[in-house]
Design a binder for these strands. Structure first.
Lengths: 138, 138
DNA sequence: AAATTATTAAACTAGATGGTTGACCATGGA
DNA sequence: TCCATGGTCAACCATCTAGTTTAATAATTT
């Protein structure tokens, strides 16, 4: 449940697997909404906060969560803070998910296959034995 | 922050955006590890728990989180519970992330472009104006 | 029938989350 | 210089989280 620090300690959480913080940040509709908003261009904190029925301070916290997950970057110009999407971590989250993509397409294929089989002859109710065991990494 | 119930109330969380629960479930290295493990085939609760330095009860809770996020399914055979990957929600998480894919490739392109530019003439430090505004959906 | 195994349940704890409010601190405009 | 604006910070609160330990339940084994 720990993770040694890396050379990459640029204001961005340590001690935790980066995927922990990224996925956690994504686990909130408000924050996802903010990210979506940021795809359309840079936004100030108040602009990001505006759509939500919560105090500015609360929104500010959400933004900080996104920031420390590395999902956004902030640039202070005068008294206003401008936020930008920082897509790298999203890419890494997607990479993680990509691992499963083949798997679920396979599953859907298998399902489709089984259905077709059932549809055709209604003969074998096979139990689909799982693949073998192997090492893992997270 | 609420979500009306749907026709789809099959033991799987309501009141929350499904993405909330899915991303939340993914926001923990233990649970991601378990999922990874399940790609290699069905596993019992104890098998899933084995690699981790925590009580079986704790692992059992993690499994329940995965289950109620719809990420796994459970089949009770005798006294042992077998778990299977249920890839649908992973697909939906990936779908959500896919929205950003073009964006970050664009960004990386832009970055690459800027670097090349800087490398070449060191002339323009343009501010890259954002795209226009538009409606959103989470 | 008794003991063992597989798993959940319940009660508890420490710490994180997500929200509030009110004070604070720059910056920018009058 | 004064005041409004943009934002953070600190304290507080309710709820959730992730873990613990000690039962309890249910299905095998002996």
């Amino acid at each position: 449940m720990e993770r040694p620090s890396s050379i990459f300690n640029h204001m961005v959480e340590l001690t935790q697997d980066p995927l922990d913080t990224v996925f956690h940040a994504l686990g909130d509709a408000t924050r996802r909404h903010m990210l979506r908003n940021l795809t359309e261009g840079e936004r100030t904190v108040s602009q990001l906060a505006a759509p939500f029925d919560m105090s500015l301070a609360a929104a500010s916290k959400h933004i900080k969560v996104l920031e420390s997950a590395g999902l956004i970057r902030r640039e202070v110009r005068g008294r206003t803070h401008w936020c930008f999407l920082e897509p790298g971590p999203l890419a890494s989250a997607q990479e993680w998910l990509n691992y499963y993509e083949h798997y679920w397409s396979d599953r859907l294929d298998v399902l489709e296959h089984l259905l077709r089989e059932e549809d055709a002859g209604r003969a074998s109710a096979s139990k689909k034995p799982p693949k073998s065991n192997k090492g893992d990494e997270t």
